[in-house]
Amino acid sequence: MNGSQSTDITSNPFLAPMSSIRAIAAGLSLIAVARSMSGAAGSSEGPGLCLAGASGSRTGSPPRLIRLADVPGYEPHRVNDMLLLCPTEAQSRHGSDTEAAEEGSQHVVFFPGDIQNFQEEMILQAEGAQWQCWSLERVALILGRRFPSRHIWVVRASRMYLHKFSCYHNFVESNLFGAPEHSPDYGAFRHLRALLRHGMEQAGLLPPATMFPPLGFSLALVGFSKGCVVLNQMVYEMAGAQEDPELAPFLGSLKDMYWLDGGHPGGSETWVTDRRALQELVASGIALHAHVTPYEVRDPMRAWVGREHRRFVRTLEELGAHLTNTLHFEDEPASIDNHFRVIQEF
């Protein structure tokens, strides 16, 4: 499948690209994923009990998941695979008249962490298989429950070093292991804007050559673990984006940013602590949300993570930010299970 095509692999899994044949043979179509998640609710098997409460829709109909390959971004060499979960009709009808009028205009973009990949890829790796309940498909379904009536976009990391270290080098300068080197203008906002525009066109949500962002468009960004490096890079680019006539409308559509237990293999800059950058973030008026667990912020071997998180929160509070800060599983031992579970608890 080339970059100009989309495949609705829920409605017809036999149209999946050749790379999906192994998944089909193993019975891993997205319909099966959704049903297995619903059927396993309350199961005690698998890391983190991530199947609980993650069924497809309130009516029992399967969700519509579309996989988009090689979606072009800001520059020709910047492409990403994406997964789109479209709200069901029942979810779209749920809510106020205002929400109904904005149907199709509300979007959530999720940046996953290490090891997270498409289901078919994770099951082939011994280390990935044990965490497959946090695959991109299953996380999309979880987020669909968290944000009903919105379109959910999951951006696959453009490189997975050793099949487990996610690298977002299309959004931020990164080493092989995905540790970032932040700068004020790497093009993260431009890349995301281009990804969403082309992704919406390929999925039939936006006519070609239409103004972008369209009227009423609103956006929330969610980064989990390694995926938080993308949000951090955007914080450093905030000042430049606000002054750019092309990016300013896109930035104005950004309503919420969620950091979920941020972490990466570098020795610093897990959380943004630069006061000037955080001032620009606060001035944007975006609602900010930090959700952490002891796995990241109370690890004595990586004490800087907790220190940076506290400084991030303290500085934003001093600057008057619209901020919520939550420590999950505070009374439980730090564990990677709970690290992943923050995805369904935030």
Rank of each mutant, 00 (worst) to 15 (best):
A32P: 05
A90V: 08
H309F: 14
A209L: 10
V33R: 03
L15P: 04
Y74L: 06
A126R: 14
A303I: 15
R276S: 12
D331N: 07
A32E: 13
A40H: 10
D337Y: 11
S6N: 09
T270P: 02
Q91A: 15
E201P: 06
V292L: 09
R78P: 00
L319P: 01
H182D: 01
L28I: 09
Y236R: 08
R302D: 14
F14Y: 14
S335W: 08
H264Q: 14
P180R: 03
Q91M: 08
Y161N: 10
S105H: 09
L136Y: 01
S158W: 00
Y161P: 01
S149G: 07
L176Y: 11
S149F: 02
V342S: 06
G42L: 10
L195T: 03
D81H: 11
G39S: 13
P72Q: 03
E246S: 07
G223I: 01
T98W: 11
L319A: 04
T315F: 02
P300H: 11
E102K: 11
S11I: 09
L30R: 12
P213T: 07
L323W: 06
G48M: 04
F340L: 14
E89Q: 14
E120Y: 14
L68G: 00
T293F: 02
F217L: 04
L316R: 02
S105R: 15
P47S: 11
P62D: 13
D97Y: 05
L30D: 13
K226L: 09
N232M: 05
F165H: 06
S11T: 13
E269H: 12
A54G: 11
F118A: 04
H322Q: 14
G285I: 03
V109D: 03
A290N: 10
E243Q: 11
Q5S: 14
R310T: 09
D337H: 13
D256Y: 13
R78I: 00
V305K: 12
G263W: 10
R276G: 05
V222F: 07
H339P: 03
Q130R: 13
Q279G: 03
S284T: 06
G240E: 04
E75M: 12
Y186Q: 01
M1K: 06
S4Q: 12
R193P: 01
V222H: 05
T326V: 15
L231D: 00
I152K: 02
P208K: 08
L316G: 00
P249A: 03
E102L: 13
E269D: 15
E103K: 12
M257S: 08
G223N: 01
S20D: 15
L136S: 04
